[in-house]
Design a protein around this nucleic acid. Structure first.
Lengths: 245, 245
DNA sequence: TTGCTCCTCACGTCACGTGAGGTGGC
DNA sequence: TTGCTCCTCACGTCACGTGAGGTGGC
């Protein structure tokens, strides 16, 4: 490939020289970013110095994070593309923030060894039933930011209580006496929790959906996540809580 | 949409509830991540609570950065997918590093208001000719890390010199006397630069390509970037430098 | 003849976006 | 009849990756 007055390169060679792939070079031809060079008599492409320089310029801008469309606009005017640089910088800053937030969550999930389907700030110290996890997941879309904060605070600080397991494992055909008994043992604790977290009140018009539909959705979800006995207990607890003690 | 025993949602509704797009929901059907719900009599899809919960789970994992293929593998087993979490975390860390490096470069480019086609560590304080810029770009691929460091150090600390512009603007038909004169005025400075940056020596077998091809490529590029008079001056300078003074 | 490199289609990837064209209930 | 929502194809996006099938010089 060495001639008297210089050198020329094959597609593979120029790709390797520039540190990109064969296909990338061809792709830059296809989109018109890099002109096709002359051919040898056998049809092989014959790249020269100008192609190498342009390819290196393209690669540099690609590595910085520019799209090929942006490169096509900026690579030719020698002036300093300040606006493009600032825009890209802002986009990168955004992306980095998103990824870092994700990493913070991943780190918390790994440290606490909890299931990955809930955000850590809504995950209690003690394990949850899958119904409870599903409910929390729905809550993240139903509640407004203020309610969610209160909800998270409650969940994270929730101490284990004997009635938790009892409720989670309640058979669908539990008798009325046992249901009433469980409700009466759950009520005082829930009363305390509500008093400790006043922002939890659903009537705060904080929600993104409006109170009406939020209530409706919540009711539907609860009805499908828990069995009849559990639903009955929840009803009894609500009745106990609505009566001033 | 409210029935006696609960609620069901249209595709648009469930998408909005979950905070994703209509098309995303349909895409999850297509790839088998989300089962299709039953239809109403008119063929409309009728989503229930299980769909909502699954969709929320998918969205959560997508937001964390998992691919749909990974989600398909992990969303079903309730156990803590530690390996997947660690792998993703490492990938995110890598990506963040890359983006941050790009931002550092962008910041330098913006502060120094220099053309974007060169890495800042190889950009001098004084403006360069486009031929010089092209040469530097090629050097980044020809030199090894050690040489590049020396080269960058030299370029960044390079003080302006009257012969710079004179060389850049040298007409192709410059007479011999003027060429010799310019070469003699350039030589002392280049001798000093070489002495100050010993690692610049091309015979360091530091390069990724091997010394032989590096020399060849460099020669070709130089021959195409500068005009005959400039090349002649470079030859005369080299001759002067090779003679001990 | 056997490898090796080069060439040109052309479809695949990933996670959807974006119409096109048609139906159903008010 | 007019809007509105829903439906199903099916092609487009972005920056290439990945063969498939053929040629040319040693």
């Amino acid at each position: 490939m060495v001639c008297a007055d210089g050198m020329s390169w094959s597609t593979r060679e120029i790709a390797e020289l520039a540190g990109t792939s064969l296909r990338a070079v061809r792709h830059y031809h296809e989109v018109g970013l890099l002109p096709e060079p002359e051919r040898r008599s056998n049809g092989y492409k014959k790249y020269g110095v100008p192609h190498l320089v342009r390819l290196l310029r393209i690669k540099r801008l690609v590595d910085l994070g520019f799209s090929l469309a942006q490169i096509a606009e900026t690579v030719d005017d020698a002036e300093h593309p300040e606006h493009a640089l600032r825009t890209l910088d802002a986009e990168l800053a955004d992306t980095i923030q998103r990824l870092q937030r994700a990493r913070v969550e991943l780190g918390t999930l790994l440290r606490r060894r909890v299931p990955a389907d809930l955000p850590p700030e809504l995950t209690p110290v003690t394990p949850m039933s899958s119904a409870d996890r599903a409910l929390v997941l729905v809550m993240t879309r139903i509640m407004g930011p203020r309610q969610l904060r209160a909800y998270g605070e409650m969940i994270r600080t929730l101490p284990a209580h004997p009635t938790d397991r009892e409720f989670d494992d309640l058979p669908a055909d539990t008798g009325e006496a046992a249901r009433q008994d469980l409700a009466e043992r759950m009520a005082p604790r829930l009363r305390l929790l509500r008093a400790a977290h006043p922002d939890l009140d659903v009537s705060h018009p904080d929600a993104p959906l409006g109170e009406e539909s939020a209530r409706e959705i919540l009711a539907t979800v609860v009805r499908e996540l828990y069995n009849p006995a559990q639903l009955d207990v929840l009803g009894r607890v609500a009745a106990l809580l609505s009566r001033p003690r």
